[in-house]
Design a protein around this nucleic acid. Structure first.
Length: 460
DNA sequence: CTAGGGTTAG
């Protein structure tokens, strides 16, 4: 029989482990468990659940599984929270089959899934762009009469927005409100973001007002979302005004908003201002994550400050941050811009070796770099070898061909693009047609023009 | 355990 004192010690240990896990000090947490066992404090289900959740979050799902294994060996039965942590881990890495296996395993062990098991499964389906299946999970929740959590609606609404069903999310929101549901700030933020992304900035602004009227105070996320929306609609000054307000109200406590602004300034060629904010990010000592590093590295590359870019890459590595596909794409783009095609190629090979599947953007960058440097044949060779191409790929090559005076080849490509229903650039079309005309193919220029017009009608 | 930021053409 355990005494009250033992239970108290276990609880104390759990509190200690929870704070270590929160600080991502997993090794220390483990050593606390080992030390505890040595002095007679037994870990319980809460102890293991805490560690499993942390391992899933910080290391990966397999690390979580191995703790589960140890837990079972120690004779402690997992509960619904254990499984929820594992399901959340699987969802983080988009491992749907693992999620479903875990669900089965739960049922086998007669552990009843709760609302969070379902919420997470629904989220997983949405993340994998399977909205129908996700919605089926929601119906299942209703059918099984499991009481909903406010987050259930948030996950549902976010999933709908992210999968292109913003209209449905909006309808859901309105009908929920009619049924007396009070939306949280998160709910508003989700909806505003969805509306902004689908080009309905005006409705988004209305919801911003509604949110305030409902008694919520907009937070940093609300501000960043609305600001980004302004930038998307090319209302740069309006967006910068929001940013200024954010700073005044003290909502710029991380690099998030600064990165959004710096990136916009970079894209619109306002280098001096971009640099100003960049400097601010650096000197202010924000705790930078991978995305922020990517932002800054990109800026350095565009400025031609390669030394600074490398220094920062090194710093990110030293911090233990993992580079992602954006980092590598930025790097490849930077290498191409500075004419280091050999290194860029090496890095491209490196990327596929590291298991990055979609490197279309990097390839487009490469082709663009080759065209700009006048290596059109190399670019064409690369173009032919690509199995996936998008409008960027085509417009780059079309532009490259025009630059080399090969207008007939360019027009052929442009037409194949149009036939596939791909969006083409106005400037691209203009250059091809005027090129054909000036090189004596005015008949062909007219033909291209009418074919484009026809294709547009057909695809409409 | 849900919400915000980052890559390519002109």
């Amino acid at each position: 029989m355990w005494s009250i004192k033992d239970k108290l010690s276990t609880r104390l240990m759990n509190i200690c482990i929870a704070s270590l896990c929160k600080a991502k000090q997993l090794e220390k947490a483990e050593s606390v468990i080992v030390d505890g066992i040595r002095i007679g404090v037994q870990p319980d289900v809460v102890t293991y659940n805490t560690v499993i959740a942390a391992y899933c979050r910080v290391v990966g799902i397999d690390a979580g599984y191995s703790i589960l294994h140890r837990m079972k060996e120690a004779g402690i039965n997992p509960d619904v929270i254990t499984y929820n942590s594992l399901i959340a881990g699987a969802t983080r890495y988009c491992m749907l089959s693992r999620c479903l296996d875990l669900f089965d395993e739960m049922l086998e062990m007669s552990i009843l899934p709760d609302i969070w098991s379902y919420n997470t499964l629904m989220h997983c389906f949405f993340k994998l762009r399977k909205p129908d299946e996700a919605y089926r999970v929601f119906q299942d929740i209703i059918l099984k009469d499991i009481s909903l959590h406010p987050a259930t609606f948030n996950i549902l609404m976010n999933g709908l927005c992210k999968n292109g069903y913003t209209e449905n999310a909006l309808m859901l929101f309105r009908s929920l409100k009619r049924h007396g549901f009070t939306p949280q700030l998160v709910t508003y933020n989700i909806l505003i973001h969805g509306l902004c992304k689908s080009g309905r900035g005006k409705t988004a602004k209305e919801f911003l007002n509604e949110l305030v009227e409902a008694g919520h105070i907009p937070n940093a996320i609300t501000y960043t979302t609305v600001m980004k929306c302004c930038f998307r609609c090319r209302q740069f000054e309006e967006g910068l005004k929001i940013f200024a307000e954010m700073r005044r109200k003290g909502y710029t406590y991380d690099a998030f908003a600064y990165c959004t602004v710096a990136s916009m300034l970079l894209k619109t060629g306002r280098m001096n201002e971009a640099n100003e904010y960049l400097g601010y990010i650096i000197t202010n000592g924000f705790d930078l994550d991978t995305v922020s590093f990517n932002n800054i590295i990109n800026l350095y590359y565009k400025e031609g400050q390669l030394d600074n870019a490398y220094k920062l890459l090194y710093e990110a590595e030293k911090k233990g941050l993992k580079s992602d596909k954006y980092t590598h794409t930025i790097l490849i783009d930077g290498l191409c811009r500075t004419g280091n095609f050999k290194e860029a190629q090496q890095h491209l090979d490196c990327m596929s070796m590291m298991g990055f599947d979609s490197n279309l953007v990097a390839l487009n960058s490469f082709i663009n770099g080759l065209c700009k440097a006048g290596h059109l044949d190399h670019a064409l060779q690369m173009f032919e070898s690509m199995d996936a191409k998008d409008s960027f790929t085509y417009s780059t090559i079309v532009h490259g061909l025009c630059k080399a005076g090969r207008f007939r080849a360019a027009s052929k490509l442009l037409l194949s693009c149009v036939r596939d229903g791909m969006r083409i650039l106005k400037s691209n079309k203009r250059v091809v047609i005027s090129g054909l005309r000036s090189s004596g193919f005015s008949h062909e220029a007219r033909k291209v023009q009418s074919k484009i017009r026809l294709a547009k009608i057909l695809h409409y």
